Amino acid sequence: MTHGVHVRGSAARRSVELGAQPVGPALGAFSVAGFPDLRSSVDAFVAYAEHGAAILEVGAPAADPWLDGPAIAAAHRCALRAGDGVRITLETVRRVSARSHAPVVVMSYWSTVQALGPQRMAAELASSGATGCLVPDIPSEHVEQWVAAATEAGISAPLLANRQAPYDELGIACRAATGFVYAPAVAGQRTGYSAGIDLDSLAAFVRSLRRIAPSTRVLTGIGVSTPTVAAAVVANGAVDGVVVGSPLIRAFAENGLSRAAELVHEFAASIAQPRDR
Rank of each mutant, 00 (worst) to 15 (best):
G196F: 04
D198G: 11
L199Y: 04
S201Y: 00
L202G: 02
A203V: 06
A203N: 10
A204D: 14
A204L: 03
A204Y: 06
F205W: 11
V206E: 09
R207K: 09
S208W: 02
L209I: 14
L209F: 05
R210H: 12
R211S: 15
R211W: 08
I212E: 06
P214D: 00
T216A: 07
V218L: 10
V218Q: 02
T220Y: 02
T220E: 03
G221L: 12
V224F: 00
S225P: 00
T226Q: 06
T226V: 01
P227A: 14
V229R: 11
V229H: 03
A231M: 08
A231Q: 09
A231Y: 02
V234L: 03
A235P: 00
A235T: 11
G237D: 07
A238H: 07
V239E: 04
G245L: 08
G245H: 01
S246N: 09
L248I: 11
L248W: 02
L248G: 04
A251P: 01
F252W: 09
A253W: 11
A253V: 03
E254S: 12
E254A: 15
N255P: 06
G256S: 12
G256E: 10
G256F: 14
L257G: 08
L257I: 13
L257Y: 04
R259D: 15
A260K: 05
A260P: 02
A260N: 03
E262S: 15
L263P: 05
H265L: 10
H265P: 11
H265D: 14
H265M: 11
E266H: 00
F267E: 11
S270A: 15
S270V: 10
I271L: 07
A272L: 12
A272Y: 10
Q273E: 10
R275G: 10
R275Q: 13
R275M: 05
R275I: 08
R275K: 07
R275W: 03
D276Y: 10
D276H: 13
